[in-house]
Design a protein around this nucleic acid. Structure first.
Length: 570
DNA sequence: CTCTCCCT
């Protein structure tokens, strides 16, 4: 457009707003537009909204679809124009949803990709992936190989096996050398950058990636894709109140997306490590995120947007009623909604403005009253970012020793507070080295620092009191109880913990500072009662981000909820 | 006895 960024054309993402009073075209994330809608539900300042990548069906995109439909109906005819762009979305479904809309098709720019299947099912997709990558390396022409796997552990194991097997190939001077590279989100930035450097002359790269390489990261030089057919996916169980993280088969749309990665620079080949019959049985597309996530934030946002009947909201794909009801119940218990289901003042209105989970927002509000908001802001910022402790396979003992410096007997929130405080005390120039030596994820900590600053700003704008509790963690643990009470659990004779609200038995996550207490060699007694940040179901159901509490605080601090839970036999 | 990926 020939103008300066941030003048007529700008962009806006969290922590980075490059727009100004003259901006006519604004690029923004779906989440940012949703935040703006809270202040302006009819989106009056926009004439045209283009919703790109709609096929990704993020929660924000799905809520926006409903919101934009309502905004168009609430504004004069033709006043708001909407363009929904999608690589794979079912157009009939969408044109039926937006009455009077039209579908237009635009051909993609892509080289042909030849898709191959295995003749019979594979026993192990990891073994098959290694064998296939080596076969490509020995038999195919030049071009890098992109292998889709499910997670960090699997990629690290595969990396070692593939390197070993490549080294033991019979020597062949005509063959390229092989360079194996991992790629996943938690990888340090400098390691991630290596996938953007093209292969050295005489060598071929094999990139072992999670689904980060499906859309977020484009690896240059790829002509061959190996698709394991599996993905690690999250699904929320409203019954358990837990996120289940499981390895599941990909959808057909996802398999096509993966294969397409071989055809960006020239004709390519995709090797699917499953049979054609198995492909035919896969789900056509991945279920939208709104059908498999905790909805408490979504429900609160809708209430703040003035939607009274959340169960009747016109979703493109309505979430299951029990999931919505459970969120309404939690918001009522937090004091965010009235008994009539309306947004309550000031708790509901404040929680809707804080860009964190409503339970975390409630912790912050309680901390203002209990005189520990400086600490709570840091704790909630840490709880809202990716895990900061790193455990490289080779240096596990060394990492554990480094992490032990921060460990608190009172649990993970206080441990996180200690890490955060030490991190922000580092001079900027030394922070990276300090993180590396301490086996801490610098990216996560930098994000926690940004979230902390943002939350602090919101906190003050809401008129909440900033105060420190110093070395006395009791008020902070009580503030955690006032937000996380639905995640309170009590120790059982076998050593598991029973969630009081649901009666479900869970284990402390092995990464927890409290998981080692109570063991024969720990010398520290196990704690009787805890609250936790979240439940994750992998091999077992684990409570993560756990803090020791006094069981007597529950009826004192949250009398309404615990009178009910006790009556229900919890 | 452990953490797919986005995003406010």
């Amino acid at each position: 457009m020939g103008c300066k960024l941030g003048s007529q054309v700008g962009y806006c993402v969290r922590f980075d707003d490059r727009t100004g009073p003259d901006t006519r075209i604004k690029y923004m994330t779906d989440g940012m537009l949703l935040r703006e809608a809270l202040l302006d539900p009819l989106l009056q300042r926009y004439k045209v909204v283009i919703l790109d990548e709609a096929h990704e069906r993020t929660v924000a995109t799905d809520v926006l679809l409903g919101l934009l439909k309502a905004a168009a109906a609430g504004r004069p005819e033709g006043d708001l124009r909407l363009v929904v762009m999608s690589a794979t979305l079912d157009t009939q479904k969408l044109t039926a949803y937006f009455q009077g809309s039209q579908a237009a098709y635009i051909a993609g720019r892509q080289y042909p990709v030849q898709v191959m299947y295995t003749p019979a099912p594979e026993e192990s997709y990891v073994d098959a992936a290694i064998t296939t990558a080596l076969q490509i390396h020995c038999e195919e022409g030049p071009g890098d190989v992109l292998v889709f796997l499910t997670g960090q552990d699997e990629i690290e194991a595969c990396e070692r096996l593939l390197t070993d097997r490549a080294a033991s190939l019979p020597p062949d001077p005509a063959r390229l050398s092989l360079c194996v590279l991992p790629l996943y989100a938690a990888l340090p930035p400098e390691a991630q950058l290596r996938v953007f450097e093209r292969a050295a002359p005489g060598s071929r790269r094999v990139v072992l990636a999670t689904n980060i390489a499906e859309t977020s990261v484009t690896v240059p030089g790829v002509r061959f894709v190996v698709d394991s057919g599996m993905v690690k996916a999250r699904a929320y169980s409203p019954r358990l109140g837990a996120d289940c993280l499981q390895v599941v088969p990909v959808s057909q749309a996802q398999a096509r997306q993966r294969s397409g990665r071989a055809g960006r620079e020239g004709p390519g080949k995709a090797f699917r490590l499953y049979t054609e019959a198995a492909f035919a049985k896969l789900a056509p597309s991945t279920a939208p995120e709104i059908l498999r996530t905790n909805l408490s934030s979504v429900v609160l946002q809708l209430k703040a947007l003035g939607v009274r009947d959340v169960l009747g909201f016109d979703f493109l794909d309505p979430p299951p009623a029990p999931a919505l009801v459970r969120s309404l119940e939690l918001l009522l218990a937090l004091g965010a909604l009235t008994r009539e289901g309306d947004l309550a003042h000031p708790i509901g209105t404040s929680l809707a403005r804080l860009p964190v989970d409503p339970m975390f927002g409630r912790v912050l509000m309680a901390s203002a009253e209990l005189g520990c908001s400086e600490e709570a802001l840091a704790v909630i910022a840490m709880a809202s970012t990716d895990p900061v402790f790193q455990f490289p396979r080779e240096k596990r003992e060394e990492a554990a020793a480094a992490h032990a410096r921060f460990a608190s007997r009172e649990g993970d929130h206080l441990t996180a507070l200690a890490v955060f405080q030490r991190f922000v005390a580092q001079p900027r120039k030394q922070a990276a080295a300090w993180c590396r030596e301490g086996f801490l994820n610098a990216r996560s900590l930098a994000k926690a620092r940004d979230i902390h600053a943002q939350l602090r700003g919101h906190f003050q704008a809401l008129g909440l009191r900033l105060a420190s509790c110093g070395d006395d963690a009791t008020p902070l643990r009580q503030a955690l109880v006032m937000g996380l009470f639905s995640h309170a659990a009590r120790r059982q004779p076998g050593g598991t913990y029973r969630v009081l609200a649901t009666g479900q038995d869970v284990a402390l996550h092995p990464s927890s500072a409290l998981a080692r207490a109570g063991g024969a060699r720990s010398g520290v007694p196990a704690v009787d009662a805890v609250v936790f940040g979240e439940l994750v179901r992998t091999t077992r159901t684990y409570a993560r981000d756990v803090t020791a509490i006094d069981i007597n605080w529950l009826p004192q601090l949250v009398p309404n909820f615990f009178a009910r839970a006790a009556a229900a036999g919890g």
